[in-house]
Amino acid sequence: MSYLAKSPWLIHYDGSSCNGCDIEVLACLTPMYDVERFGIINTGNPKHADILAITGSVNEQNIPIIKNIYDQMLEPKVVIAIGICATSGGIFRECYNVQGGVDQVIPVDVYIPGCAARPESIIDGVVKGLGVLEEKYKKYGKKR
């Protein structure tokens, strides 16, 4: 067993989101929800992070950014799509500049629905992600 599940560090990237989910991600850190209880830290640096939380859909211009961030994260890593836009494009699905959900660009492990996703469901999704993280660690450990 690893300690990944006890100390998941998170990086948040805002795709083409409306801010709704973003501020809910931030709200998770604050006294009402206080995710640091679970050892979750919102680090701003992909190289330190275990979980990539993306809000909002992908558009033409942020595709390379998302790929870059994902590539700079170290194994094992998990991607969580927060909110309906990150899942499928949501209300903006039909916009000309929206390519759809995050899974168009990088593999997504957990989808969190909602517009905007509520802090409770975000925490729930992250906890789901921890299981995936542990699994990936096992696979990754074998490779090593």
Binding site: S16, C18, Q61, N62, F92, E94, C95, Y96, V98
Partner: peptide, 25 residues
């Protein structure tokens, strides 16, 4: 331009009453 979705053009697809929801977002 990283967040540009192009929702001003959604008027072609959404009826005027629904544009309130788009505007809200």
């Amino acid at each position: 331009g990283y967040v540009h979705r192009g929702l001003e053009k959604l008027v072609e697809k959404q009826e005027y009453a629904n544009m309130v929801y788009v505007a809200e977002r």
